[in-house]
């Protein structure tokens, strides 16, 4: 087997809903992401897949179990330690419109990671911003613009470029294409595939659309009600899907696509 990059060991998350009620969003989830083997997580909304992403990036605390990055525990860190983790794990959110501070020019935003992780000084980062924009098929002149002057698809490209700029080990894409319309979705997916090849990125791709997730990952975890009910290789998903639920997901995808 190849090197283990990210491991989740019996991770659970329980939210307290007030009045003593609790909601178990994630129940005893374990999986491993190997280097250069992108993993997909699919499931309907509310199945806990975004909670997993938030726990890996430390935005939500883990209730029990632990998360390891290359053998080091990265769950339950304080903010300073968490910052070091972001050097290696980056996340792209669903909504590109709310991912950039409305009063920060796109170019500055692109340079943030490079500057603050001490890779470049601000001047070099400014020049790099132009190159990053070209990398995601945008014009370098857009660097001076404010986020509201760009379209959703352009913004998501910017966010992806920023995430990749510091060459992280793992990029988490949490429904990264879901807020965009279908034609733009396809372009972004193609971009992600290209970048993956170019920079040997490992993705943790979270989505509800099996067809989309399948096209970009090697392994897929199917989630339902906070549990992983099946793990299959993306390539043999059609033949090997064992669980009824996975088949339901598959059939629902194809009935819409035809």
């Amino acid at each position: 087997m190849e090197d283990k990059l990210l491991e989740l060991e019996h991770v659970s998350k329980t939210f307290s809903g007030g009045k003593g009620k609790t909601v178990e969003a994630v129940k005893d989830v374990s999986f491993t992401v190997y280097k250069n083997e992108s993993l997909g997580i699919v499931g309907e909304s509310g199945c806990g897949k975004s909670t997993i992403a938030r726990m890996i990036t430390g935005l939500t605390a883990v209730s029990s179990g632990k998360i390891l990055l290359e053998g080091n525990v990265i769950s339950g860190l304080n903010r300073r330690e968490q910052r070091e983790v972001y050097r290696n794990i980056q996340m792209v959110f669903q909504d590109p419109y709310s991912a950039i501070s409305p009063r920060m020019p796109v170019g500055t935003f692109l340079g943030e990671g490079l500057v603050h992780f001490g890779i470049m000084n601000r001047k070099e980062a400014e020049a790099e911003a132009g190159r990053l924009l070209e990398m995601v098929d945008l014009e370098p002149q857009l660097a001076d613009r404010l986020p509201h002057q760009l379209s959703g698809g352009q913004l998501q490209r910017v966010v992806i470029a920023r995430a990749i700029s510091i060459h992280p080990r793992l990029v988490i894409l949490d429904e990264a294409t879901s807020a965009l319309d279908v034609s733009v979705q396809k372009q972004i997916l193609e971009l992600l595939v290209r970048l993956q090849k170019e920079f040997h990125l490992t993705y943790l791709f979270i989505g509800h659309d099996l067809a989309v997730v399948r096209s970009i990952t090697k392994q897929i975890c199917v989630m339902k009600d906070g549990r992983i009910i099946e793990k299959v290789a993306s390539a043999s998903l059609l033949e090997k899907a064992g669980e009824n639920y996975t088949k339901q997901l598959l059939s629902s995808v194809f009935s819409v696509r035809e």
């Binding site: 501070s101 935003f109 603050h116």
Partner: peptide, 26 residues
């Protein structure tokens, strides 16, 4: 609580930089 604040932390900003570069301008 906006996503761009979390996004900024992912960009490696320390807490005081989050305040001065992201929160105050807004």
């Amino acid at each position: 609580e906006n996503q761009y604040v979390q996004e900024a932390r992912m960009g490696g900003l320390k807490e005081h930089q989050v305040i001065f570069r992201v929160i105050l301008p807004n």
